[in-house]
């Protein structure tokens, strides 16, 4: 856990842009969650309290979390201010080259990807169903896809790959791609 914490903390302050496939294996033997966010997406920001709540509930139980910022033009100051504004305590990756975006196959913020201890992609999609479309926000979510997936992983229930369409702001392809 000490190594894990050091790794996570180092990513809070160190500019991480290169994806090392072995890195997420080292993150957690159980599962690693990448949460793709943007500093200015109202839906991603609206999910911040639930992201923090899921982190609080699961990181102590051996699951690693990273926020991933796919917008290449962001400055470290902008990311740091965003982490502070929304009370994020987990490490972040600034995915300048979209290595994380490609590996996870995500297109939206907020969107999450859950990798098992062996690096297998187990879930990709929305955090929950609070937002059903632009402007359609339930009072409270009735389906909790990310929580359910992590819960199953911890209790050893079989998790087969599952995905759904996220709702939010599109991740722009890098120019030249």
């Amino acid at each position: 856990m000490t190594i894990l914490r050091t790794l996570l903390l180092s990513c809070v302050f160190v500019h991480c842009s290169v994806l090392d496939a072995s890195e997420e294996k080292a993150d957690s033997p159980v599962a690693t969650v990448w949460i793709f966010v943007a500093v200015d997406c109202p839906i991603a920001n609206g999910c911040a309290p639930e992201i923090n709540s899921i982190y609080d509930d699961f990181h102590k139980r051996g699951i690693a979390f990273h926020l991933v910022y796919p917008e290449p033009s962001l400055t470290t100051e902008e990311i740091t201010a965003h982490l502070e504004d929304y009370g994020f305590n987990m490490g972040f990756k600034h995915d300048i080259d979209h290595d994380y975006v490609k590996k996870a196959g995500v297109t939206i913020t907020p969107e999450v990807a859950v990798f098992g201890g062996d690096g297998t992609l187990l879930y990709r999609g929305r955090i929950n169903n609070r937002y059903s479309d632009y402007g359609d926000r339930r009072k409270a979510a009735t389906e909790h896809y990310l929580r359910d997936c992590l819960g199953q992983l911890l209790t050893g229930e079989p998790v087969t790959f599952h995905e759904n369409d996220a709702i939010g702001c599109y991740i722009e392809a890098l120019s030249g791609n």
Partner: peptide, 8 residues
Amino acid sequence: THFHPSGK
């Protein structure tokens, strides 16, 4: 006034 909480 109608407010939407924004995440912060």
